[in-house]
Amino acid sequence: MRYAICFTPSASDPLTLVAANWLGRNVYSGEMVEPPATRGLGIHEIAFHTAVPRRYGFNGTLKAPFRLAQNMSEAGLLRDLMRFSGTLSPFEIPRLEAARLGSAFGLVPSVPCQQMHFLAASVMQAFDHYRAPLTEAEIERSDPDGLSATQFANLHRWGHPHVMDEFRFHMMLTGTVNPADMARMEQVLRDFFEPALAEPVPVSNIALMMEEGTGGPFRVHSLHPMGKISARKIA
């Protein structure tokens, strides 16, 4: 079993519901959702291209999936995450947009969000001691020969190459897309998600994600509100 620390909107947020419709699975309930009927892309094409992000669920990763270290427990992780989230101030991402991420697509801030970058770095530093060391197989799956020197150092220090200065916040919407289909996919995604991206995205919770079994889908295990309880009550 693995855990991940992520951002995902609340269960009732319109963006959560639209993403569940697109990916074919609700990240909170784990329930499968019928793929949408979309002009320009067939149902079977959507199911194929969303297979990978469907497994991981709709989220922006702050700390990538990890196994608990031998002397750590889920109860301790929950306790510390609750305390940690209470020290943070909620903020907003002014705007998300569908964009190309190499050969795939995801939602990214239209302009860099320094608060999200700071949040990811803080999560990494606060919770890395919960992570079991990477196995040789896990290191090989990260393609170490294709990493830069900084990314290689991150992999061995933090368990993932794209952290700290290499971190770029994103919420995956597809797996690898054939170059010939990139323009078509981009237009479909923009049309599909545009209504849910008209408003700023509030970042007011941190989600603990949990893998169902070995290699199973991830779902939201618990949601941890940011900010002091007294301040949230006043608000």
Rank of each mutant, 00 (worst) to 15 (best):
E199R: 14
Q187P: 00
L119S: 06
G24Q: 06
R168D: 10
P90D: 13
N154C: 08
E140W: 05
S222M: 12
L208A: 03
F105M: 05
A104R: 14
A183T: 14
R219L: 13
L208N: 02
L223R: 12
I206N: 09
I206L: 13
T150W: 00
E34F: 10
A69W: 04
Q187I: 11
R232C: 09
V108D: 10
R168E: 14
R79I: 09
P94E: 10
G213S: 07
D181N: 13
Q70P: 01
V52Q: 08
V52W: 04
M164N: 12
R79Y: 11
A132N: 05
P90C: 09
P217S: 00
M210L: 12
G215P: 06
G86M: 08
L23Y: 01
M82G: 15
R25F: 02
W158C: 07
F48E: 12
N21V: 00
L15H: 01
P65I: 11
R2I: 01
R190E: 15
N26G: 02
S12L: 08
H221I: 05
I46G: 02
A153C: 08
A120F: 06
V27T: 13
S10Q: 13
A235N: 10
A104K: 05
H162A: 08
M209E: 06
E136N: 05
V203G: 06
Y3H: 05
L68D: 09
E194S: 10
A120V: 04
L119Y: 07
Q125H: 15
L147C: 09
S122Y: 04
V220Q: 10
M1N: 00
P179Q: 03
V18W: 03
R219Q: 15
M182I: 12
F152V: 00
G215V: 05
I46Q: 14
A47M: 06
S204N: 15
A207Q: 10
L77S: 04
M172L: 15
S89E: 14
L147M: 11
S122V: 03
L77V: 12
S89L: 10
P144L: 12
L23S: 06
A64Q: 04
M72I: 09
E194D: 12
H49N: 07
L173K: 07
V177F: 10
T150Y: 05
A99Q: 07
T176H: 00
D80P: 06
T135P: 04
E212I: 00
G102S: 11
A198S: 14
T8S: 13
S222E: 14
R67H: 12
R219Y: 11
V111A: 11
I234N: 13
N71S: 13
G57D: 01
F218H: 00
L62V: 13
S12P: 01
P195C: 09
S142W: 03
K228G: 00
P195N: 04
P35I: 10
F66N: 03
E194C: 01
V33P: 06
A183N: 09
M116K: 08
A98F: 04
E136I: 08
T214Y: 03
V52T: 06
E199C: 07
G42M: 03
F127W: 05
Q115M: 11
K233T: 07
A4K: 05
L197G: 06
P217W: 00
H49T: 09
V177N: 02
A64E: 04
P36Q: 02
G213H: 08
A207P: 00
V111E: 13
T50W: 04
P109L: 08
S89T: 14
G76A: 08
P200E: 03
H170I: 07
A132M: 02
